[in-house]
Each structure stands twice: as structure tokens, then as C-alpha cells.
Amino acid sequence: MPGIPHADVTIDANIVRSLMATSPWPASEDPSFWARGFDNEIWCVGHRAVHLPRRHEAVGALRNEQRWLNEVTRSLPVQTPAVLFAGEPTAQYPYPWSVTHFVNGRTGFDSPLKVRAASAATLGAALRALHRAAPPDAPRNPLRGVALDRRSENLQTRLTAVDSQTAEIVMPHFDRGLTAQPFTDQPVWIHGDIHPGNLIYDNQELVGLVDFSDLACGDPAVDLGGALFSLPVVAHGSFWQSYGNEDEGLRLRALGWTALLAILHLQIEIAEHTVLACEALAWLARLTSPQV
């Protein structure tokens, strides 16, 4: 099962400080570590965040963010990590990097389901605003925003590592997504990695959407599946009403993506992300509900 990829650079406060010296904020506060993911480390410097690829494979995604993020997200009703400065490699650090707006608050991991449920309409409105037609030169992601049949073999492989009961829960929902009306419209912008850890809440409201490393264009069902994964079943109606799309094929594909994402998240063997595996277990339990 997947683990966090090995980093090919070492990032510390001294590196971040040296990079910030080349930015418009050279006399900023001391850097503090915030988070580490598959591709990037995030450091806080005052009221700003510094995004640094921790491996070469992440550079393309960061360049996509620098090129597209501000343009794509300007109309969203929630905050995003807007790029404030695009940094270039230095003698101390070999990759491009970014200074972004820091979205303050708590992630969905640290927010009760009732808080997430209360903000379901806001999430629906945010994704509706994001899912606008993308231009021909928009980036593609070979794993997100694609037809579900392109992920079927991978899911079957992953299911061999889980118990038969889990497979019996997941497959009917995935199969319904497979047989649903396919996406044939013009590709739209997608976030690509919607899950509770990328939703930011403050004062019991959804205030931010972060981590656009998978920003691309394609079928919006992947984002909608991530949203359903992040919400209790009782909030799905509010979410869909706000999102405003009555296409049954889209809804079935979204549920298929939810089942796939639950298995993907369940198998993440990263200490920092064990909470994501717990979210997956909780969602698998919710999949048995007749309300889904």
C-alpha cells in the first residue's frame, strides 16, 4: 500500500528564511513548519504561507498553481491560497516555490460532522463556482477528472488488500458510477483532491479551500465525490441543492468516485494521515445507509 514518497531535498527554517530574503517580504517573521504532504511542505511566515516542493515530481504541479490558481479561483465564495509571489530556484534550494495567502482556521479533520453539515451549501456553491469551462491549454491529470473506467483496474488491485465485506460495500456504488451516463461536456476546472483535510473551517463555517496541487480540467464528478466523502449523508441534499445540477449521471459518477476515494484514503499508510484512513472507515460505514 502507498506510503509518503521519499523527499529529494531537505527543507528547514534556514532554507525558508533564505528564500524569503529574495521575496518582497525579506524581513518577515521567523518561519514555522505547518504541514507536509506527498508533494510539498508548507511553512508559515507571518500571515503568509510558503509552498515548497519536496521532490522533483511535484514541480509541474506547483508551476500549474503559479500559472492558473489565481485566475481559476477568483470568483469562489471561500478563501484559497492565492499566489502572492512565484519564487525561483536558488543556490540553497533547487525548485520553484511560492508565497501564498494563508487560509486561517481548522481543517475538516478537526471539525465535527455537524459543522461540516451546516456548511454543505457553501461547499456546493464553491465547487459550482470552480467548475467553469476550462480553456484548451488547461492542464490535465491522468488520475483525476478522468472516466471511472480508467481507474477500475487500480481499484480492483486495491480491493485485493481489503476484506471481502469492504469490497461488497464499495463495488455496487462504483459499478453504478461506471454504468452512468459518461461525461461528454467541455472539460471544467477541478480541484482534484477534495477531502476534509483540504476544507478549512472557522467560527463553524467553511471559509477556505486549499491544496490545489491536482488542479486540472476534466469531469467534475471527482470533486463532487470528494465532497460527498467529506459530508454526512444528511447534508447531501443541501450540498446538491446549492451545487444546482440535476444530472443523474453526474450524481452517480460522483458516488462512484466517493467509493474509489474511500479505498484510496483507507490505504494511505502515513502517520500524519491516519485520520484520513479513519474518515474512510467512517464513510464506508455510511455507504451502507439507504439514504446514500
Rank of each mutant, 00 (worst) to 15 (best):
M1W: 10
L178M: 08
L284C: 08
S98G: 06
L250Q: 09
F38M: 11
E168W: 08
M1H: 12
T258W: 03
I190A: 00
L252N: 08
S164L: 14
L178C: 04
Q165S: 15
Y201V: 09
E88M: 11
L281K: 13
F102Y: 15
A120H: 04
T90E: 02
L62I: 01
R286M: 10
R116V: 03
W34T: 07
E29Y: 04
D149E: 12
V146T: 06
L123Q: 07
P24K: 11
G37L: 07
W240A: 09
A82W: 02
E248H: 06
D12A: 07
L52R: 01
A221T: 03
A126S: 15
E279Q: 11
E29W: 06
A167G: 15
P24Q: 14
Q79A: 15
T90G: 08
A125T: 12
T73H: 00
P24G: 14
R150Q: 12
L260M: 07
V234H: 12
G256W: 01
T10R: 15
L255R: 12
N154Y: 05
R251V: 03
Q291H: 13
V233A: 14
R251G: 07
L159S: 04
P220V: 07
V83R: 01
V50H: 03
V210T: 11
A134W: 02
D175G: 02
L199C: 11
A120P: 12
P24H: 14
R106D: 13
Q92K: 05
M1I: 10
I190V: 13
E269P: 05
N40I: 02
T274R: 15
A35D: 12
P81M: 03
V162K: 04
H195F: 13
C278Q: 15
I42K: 00
T166C: 11
I169H: 10
Q92T: 09
Q165I: 10
H173F: 13
R140F: 01
G225C: 05
G145V: 01
F229A: 06
E41K: 01
Q186E: 15
G46V: 11
A180S: 11
R151M: 10
N70M: 02
E246M: 07
A126N: 12
G124T: 13
A277R: 15
W97G: 01
